[in-house]
């Protein structure tokens, strides 16, 4: 069974702290998550870019049947979110009402704990999203 691993997370931490994506220098296609070659044209001449911190909701779900590392957070919202040139699949947090989750709703990125291993004490962090421009919400977010 999977356990959290220091090296597994360490090598991808920067991606998870920024959701950095790849853009093909040859054909201009942008994609997340990054791959070694462009899914459109096959070129490996790519550059890394940082997405904007705000985006728009495409589709979402409220997942009750969660994997074991998410038992203490369930149910969790998961959404497909457009961040300008790319889409990302991410957790949505701080949802006060599902009315906030209509298609096209504005979302903002927040830094959060993703999962932890109770016995080994490891914690993975990453970016999640929450409904944006809500009255009283801080852009920094905690």
């Amino acid at each position: 069974m999977e356990r959290l691993s220091i090296s597994k997370f360490w090598r991808i931490r920067k991606l998870h702290y920024t959701l950095a994506y790849s853009k093909c220098k040859k054909c201009g296609y942008a994609f997340y998550p990054p791959k070694h070659v462009c899914p459109k044209c096959g070129s490996s001449d790519l550059e890394q870019r940082t997405p904007p911190r705000e985006g728009k909701l495409i589709s979402w779900t409220k997942l009750y049947e969660v994997p074991f590392y998410f038992e203490d957070q369930k149910p969790i919202y998961i959404g497909l979110i457009n961040l300008g040139e790319v889409n990302v699949m991410a957790q949505i947090v701080d949802v006060l009402s599902e009315d906030e989750l209509r298609e096209g709703a504005e979302m903002e990125m927040v830094f959060r704990r993703v999962k932890q291993d109770g016995t080994a004490g490891l914690i993975y962090y990453g970016m999640k999203f929450r409904p944006a421009h809500r009255s009283g919400s801080s852009k920094q977010g905690q």
Binding site: L63, P67, F70, I78, Q91, V114
Partner: peptide, 12 residues
């Protein structure tokens, strides 16, 4: 390392 990392499953 990406979609499942954040809790996604086949069902979601």
């Amino acid at each position: 390392e990406h979609e499942a990392f954040y809790g996604s499953t086949l069902a979601s």
